[in-house]
Simulated assay, not measured.
Amino acid sequence: MPAQTSKRVRNTQLRRHFLIGNEAHVLPHPTYPSPPPDGHTKGWKVYVRPLPNGPDMTTWLKKVQFKLHHTYTDASRMIEAPGPFEVSETGYGEFGVEIRLYFAPESGEKAVYREHYLVLAPYGSEEQKARQKRENVVVAERLETIEFNEPTQEFFKAMTAEEQFDWLKSKKVGRGKGRKAEMVSESEVEPTAQLPERPVEGSGAGNGLGAGGAWSRVYERQVLAQMGQSAASLELALEHEKREMEARRRKMEELGVAITSNEALVGRCF
C-alpha cells in the first residue's frame, strides 16, 4: 500500500463523480486514419472524464491504465496526467476494457479497477438509433463514484481547494489602469464537486436524453422515477405469474386425481 504522507482526517469522506464511457463512429471518419486498417469498420475512443462542471480530475487522479483486447498492439495503455485520459483506436468488434485508476500519491490510496464494455452499434429506441446513425456517433457512458474515507490531511486540503475549479474558468482583465486579471467562470451552472442540480449544456449526448439531458440531480430523479415505475410493473407481472402458476398447479392436481381414479377403475375391471 502506498505510504501515507500525513495524518488522516477522521470521520470524513470525500466523494468524486466522473464518467467512464466510449464514443464510436462508422469509418471513414475525419478523426481516424484513412484508409482504415483492413477489416476495420469503426473508429472508437474509450475514456475517463470529469463531469462537465465538476472539479479537475487530476487533483485526485494521476494515471489511468486501459487494457484492450489482446489482439491490439500494446494492448495495455497507460495515460498519465494531465491527460486527457482516453485511448483512440479502430476495429470491428466489441469487448470489455479493463480500467485501472491510480490516485495522487498524497492520497495514500491503492489503485482501483473498473470495466467498460465497448459499445460500437447504435442502441436504444428506434428514434435514438436513427439519430445515432444520422449523426454517425454512438456514445455509451455511465456515471461512476469514488469515495475516499478518512483522507490524509494533505489530500483533503487539495480536494477542498478552490483551485481545482480553475480549469472551468477563463482569465478576465478589468478595464482601467492597474486592474488585475481574475479567473472567472463562464458557465451558468455553479461549479460543484457534486451532481449539479440542473443539466449542464453539452452533457448527456448519446444517453437518449439529448444534449444537456444527463448527469444532474434532475436526471437522477427521472431515473429513480423510471426505476420505481419499472419496479411496480415488475411486481404486477410477478403477481400475475403467481396466479397463473397457482392455476396450473390446481389443474395438474385435478388431472392427477383423475388419472388415479381411472387407474383404480381399470384395476377393478381386471
Rank of each mutant, 00 (worst) to 15 (best):
P151T: 07
V218K: 02
R49V: 00
P37H: 04
Y92P: 01
P199R: 04
V87P: 05
V223Q: 10
Q164D: 14
M159E: 13
G267R: 03
K157N: 08
L143S: 07
R249E: 13
F103C: 01
F66G: 00
K251R: 11
E89F: 09
A237N: 08
Q132I: 01
L101V: 08
E163K: 11
K62I: 05
G39L: 12
R248E: 14
I146A: 14
E163H: 08
M159H: 06
P196A: 12
M245E: 15
I20D: 01
A130V: 04
H25Y: 14
D166I: 06
E154N: 08
L168H: 03
P28Y: 12
V200K: 00
G83K: 05
S107Q: 01
E254D: 11
Y117H: 14
F155L: 04
R114H: 15
E163S: 15
N53F: 06
I20Q: 08
Y72M: 12
F66R: 01
N11T: 06
V139M: 04
Q153D: 15
M159P: 07
E246N: 06
R217S: 11
A247F: 09
E23D: 14
K67H: 08
E144D: 15
Q226N: 11
L19W: 01
L265Y: 10
S34H: 14
Y219F: 07
G212H: 03
A232G: 02
G206F: 06
G212K: 01
D74S: 14
W60E: 09
A205F: 06
G208D: 06
R217G: 04
R16W: 14
A258P: 02
T71F: 05
G228D: 08
R175E: 14
G39S: 12
T160K: 07
T71C: 04
K171V: 13
P82L: 06
L118I: 10
Y92K: 06
K177A: 15
E162M: 10
P84Q: 02
S261W: 10
L168A: 07
L234P: 00
S76T: 15
V189P: 08
E109I: 00
R198Y: 15
M252W: 12
E186N: 10
L168V: 10
Q65A: 12
R198S: 14
G204E: 00
T31W: 11
P122A: 07
V138Q: 04
D38V: 08
G210N: 07
P37Y: 05
M245H: 09
T71I: 07
E190D: 09
D74K: 10
R268G: 02
K62V: 05
P122T: 00
M252F: 09
P84K: 02
D38T: 07
H40N: 11
T145Y: 13
R15T: 15
T31I: 11
A24P: 03
A258V: 12
Q229H: 12
Y219L: 01
N22F: 06
V173N: 05
E182F: 13
Y102F: 12
L195C: 05
A225W: 09
E186L: 08
S187L: 15
E239K: 14
A161L: 12
A237W: 10
R179I: 02
C269Y: 11
L120H: 05
L195I: 07
R175F: 09
T59P: 06
G108E: 01
E89D: 14
R179Y: 08
E147P: 01
E89H: 14
M227G: 03
G178R: 02
F155C: 05
P36R: 06
K42H: 03
P35R: 11
G210Y: 15
S76N: 08
G256K: 03
G213A: 03
V46G: 02
